[in-house]
């Protein structure tokens, strides 16, 4: 099979071969790595189970990061969810709790899947697992959806970047949410084109988001950006399944993201020299963790 270099090519290949995004990713990986379908699936199942553990641990008990800057919030949300008082409904609260959990687990030196990065490790698990629970999907179907997310991720990786140091948080949390939205659309029965519409809308909505980690640690504002990214993915999947299309196609949205990312001053690209990192409070946290002269 041809290797898709852009979103448009990806849609064409899928249409010509009458396959889904996930089947494209599976076929490509089998071809390039010489692996069997069974091997790929068993590896993806272990990936899913690490994701699920990370998205669960912080909801069952309070998990704190090594620095102590973040923690306990996934647990709070889970309690709130159990109280039944939420405004937005259980799926939304659950997704945020899962995303925070994975971020807290990451900060605590727990096991996570960098998807695509460690900083954004909560978004895809939270959005996908929530959608799976709401729709009553099996683990096999979720694994299939993970392959779909990777089909979009590969196009992002080939044409732009996942690194906050290069493209700001839009490249990390934005890519994670775009991949998640695309995967959920496939999980809900949408076409490859609809999946890419969802990814495009996510990128447009997160365009310009800077990377400004307090004390250089992947904690503040990262954990809450994972919660917000997960919600963005779920909401956008609904938008697209209702029949709404992106007026700007995926490839344009991706190119815009990359260009904006490179235009960001270096202070706003993971250097911890801008944004919330250098607010008086951000600097106070930094001193608290690393002392005065760090």
């Amino acid at each position: 099979m041809k290797i898709a270099k852009s979103g448009a090519e990806l849609i064409n290949i899928c249409e010509e071969n009458h396959i889904s995004l996930s089947e494209y990713a599976i076929a490509r990986e089998m071809e390039s790595k010489g692996l069997s379908r069974e091997t790929l699936f068993s590896y993806m199942h272990s990936t899913l189970s690490v994701m699920r553990e990370a998205a669960t641990l912080g909801r069952e008990k309070e998990v704190y990061s090594l620095s102590g800057l973040i923690g306990g919030d996934a647990y709070k949300l889970q309690q709130y969810l159990n109280s039944g008082k939420s405004l937005m409904g259980s799926a939304t609260i659950k997704a945020m709790a899962m995303a925070l959990s994975a971020s807290e687990v990451n900060g605590s030196m727990g096991k996570i899947v960098a998807c695509p990065t460690a900083g954004s490790c909560g978004i895809l698990p939270a959005a996908l697992l929530t959608a799976g629970e709401e729709l009553g999907k099996t683990d096999d179907e979720l694994v299939q959806a993970l392959f779909a997310s990777s089909a979009v991720g590969m196009i992002i990786g080939m044409n732009a970047t996942f690194a906050g140091a290069e493209g700001g948080c839009q490249a990390e949390c934005g890519s994670a949410a775009a991949m998640a939205a695309a995967a959920i659309v496939e999980l809900m029965g949408g076409t490859p084109e609809m999946s890419l519409n969802a990814a495009a809308i996510v990128f447009k909505n997160i365009l310009g988001l800077v990377c400004d980690p307090v004390a250089g640690l992947v904690e503040i504002p990262c954990a809450k950006r994972n919660a917000s990214g997960a919600i963005s993915a779920l909401a956008t999947a609904d938008l697209v399944m209702a029949g709404v299309a992106s007026k700007i196609p995926f490839d344009d949205a991706l190119a815009a993201m990359y260009k904006v990312g490179r235009e960001l001053p270096k202070e706003l690209r993971e250097t911890a020299l801008g944004g919330v990192a250098i607010t008086p409070t951000g600097l106070k946290y930094k001193e608290q963790v690393f002392g005065k002269d760090a």
Binding site: T47, I112, A114, C115, F147, S149, G153, T161, E219
Partner: peptide, 23 residues
């Protein structure tokens, strides 16, 4: 990245928090 595979995007499985400072 020129040639990106499925598990470059979904992975690695690692102990957090940072791929450069920890993994």
């Amino acid at each position: 990245m020129a040639n990106v595979g499925v598990f470059d995007v979904l992975g690695p499985i690692m102990i957090g928090p940072s791929s450069s400072h920890t993994a």
